[in-house]
C-alpha cells in the first residue's frame, strides 16, 4: 500500500514536485498501477534466471572519432557562459556559475 510519505519520497527520487493537492489523485493512480505490477511480484518467477548475455553484439571499433562540435552541444542550453553550460550553484544562492 503506497502512503503519502512514500509519494513524497518518490517525488524526491524523481526530482518532481508533488503539490499536496495532487497527492490524493496520485495515491489512487499509483495504487492501481502497483496492483497491476503485483501480478508479476506475486507470480513466483524469482527462481528464473535472467539472461546473462548482453544484447550488444554489434559494438563498433574503439577508435577516436570527431565528437559533437561545442557550439552544437551548447545550442539548446537554457543559459551559457562562454564555452560552458551555465547554471545556478549546487548550494543555496541565486548567482550563476
Amino acid at each position: 500500500m503506497i502512503t503519502r510519505k512514500e509519494i513524497q519520497r518518490l517525488g524526491e527520487l524523481s526530482a518532481l514536485e508533488i503539490p499536496p493537492e495532487e497527492e490524493e489523485g496520485l495515491l489512487r493512480d499509483l495504487a492501481s498501477l502497483v496492483a497491476l505490477a503485483d501480478v508479476v511480484a506475486q507470480g513466483g518467477f524469482d527462481g528464473e534466471e535472467p539472461p546473462a548475455e548482453c544484447p550488444c553484439s554489434a559494438l563498433r571499433k574503439d577508435e577516436v572519432t570527431a565528437s559533437l562540435p561545442r557550439d552544437d552541444a551548447l545550442r539548446n542550453a537554457s543559459a551559457r557562459q562562454g564555452e560552458y553550460f551555465s547554471t545556478i550553484p549546487h548550494s543555496a544562492g541565486g548567482e550563476t556559475a
Partner: peptide, 18 residues
C-alpha cells in the same frame, strides 16, 4: 540545463531542476 524547459523558479540547482 543542457536542453529542455528551464524554470525560473528555485534558488538552488536541485530546486531549479525539480
Amino acid at each position: 540545463i543542457r536542453y529542455g524547459q528551464c524554470s525560473t523558479r528555485g534558488v538552488t540547482r536541485e530546486e531549479r531542476i525539480r
